[in-house]
């Protein structure tokens, strides 16, 4: 029998220290940190970052590599504001990975449509990297990304590569002056409506503000897509990541164990639950 000291030593709530190997401002309210953390993970999973005294927050992994973990963070609350002050070379307390990933194996040889809005592009970046690393496994890939303005574009280095590798459609809520990446003014929803054909074979990932997810999904279903072709991400408050604290429950499903990626038919009736 294990003693209680040994049990507590293995506590799942206990984070471990990893090094910040890169820090990079993306826009004026978002930044990306790269952690020297050899973590086996799948696209769509997330980790918890801890700052003792400040708190802990779940952040989705935005890269796909066995050698490092990248996190893209928008400054919205106490925790993220403090995280933004971190520097290259600092140590950060983390635990993870958590969550059910996109079942990428199932999508082999399918066409992929990836739709992201604002900071919702970040969790999708890992899956696009996965597709890029295993390009031969997938059919046609279309990316639809929406940002507020050209200044709010995330991951420019990646987009520079992806614009040649995939079909990429960028939209901005507002364009004053010059646009970039051929981005048009208007919502992602309009672009999806205009560009996406009757593609019965494609798998769709959507991540972004709840209202955007809802509208895009409606448009796709109108176009004849099945609910089972569409995968969406849910965002909830969570404290534990292991199905205990009960905060992230959506109609009986734990976002931390059964999500944050859900198939559209699992969640569609309970978007505000």
């Amino acid at each position: 029998m294990t003693t209680k000291e040994e049990i507590i030593k293995k506590s799942p709530y206990k984070p471990k220290l990893v090094e910040v190997i890169d820090y990079h401002r993306e826009t004026n309210d978002t930044f990306t940190i790269k952690l020297g953390w050899k973590l086996k993970h799948e696209p769509g999973q997330f980790v918890f970052c801890s700052l003792p005294g400040i708190g802990e927050a779940p952040i989705s992994i935005c890269s796909h590599s066995d050698n490092y973990v990248e996190l893209n963070i928008r400054e919205v609350g106490n925790m993220t504001r403090f995280l933004s002050k971190i520097k290259k070379g600092d140590k950060l307390l983390v635990r993870g990975p958590y969550g059910r990933a996109y079942p990428m194996d199932k999508f082999k040889s399918h066409n992929m449509i990836i739709i992201g809005g604002g900071s919702g592009v970040a969790p999708l970046k890992g899956s696009v990297e996965y597709i890029s690393n295993n390009r031969g496994d997938f059919g046609e890939v279309s990316l639809f990304f929406g940002f507020r303005t050209p200044e709010d574009v995330l991951f420019r280095k990646r987009l520079d590569v992806w614009k040649d590798e995939f079909s990429m459609y960028i939209n901005f809520d507002r364009v004053e002056g010059k646009t970039i990446y051929g981005g048009k003014q208007g919502f992602v929803t309009e672009r999806v409506k205009e560009v996406v054909g009757d593609n019965k074979d494609a798998i769709v990932f959507i991540c972004g503000p709840p209202i955007m997810i809802e509208k895009v999904a409606e448009i796709l279903i109108d176009k004849g897509f099945d609910e089972k072709q569409i995968y969406i991400s849910a965002e909830r408050l969570m404290y534990c990541g292991i199905g205990k604290c009960g905060r992230c429950m959506i109609h009986g499903k734990y976002t931390c164990l059964d999500g944050a990626v859900f198939r559209y038919d699992e969640l569609k009736d309970y978007k505000d639950d």
């Binding site: 003792p52 005294g53 400040i54 708190g55 802990e56 534990c240 604290c245």
Partner: peptide
């Protein structure tokens, strides 16, 4: 019912505390 919340309680040295 077992739902919970997690908070950090910090001491006046702003360095030590507990979760």
């Amino acid at each position: 019912c077992h739902c919970f919340t997690i908070e950090d309680e910090v001491n006046f040295d702003l360095k030590t505390g507990k979760r």
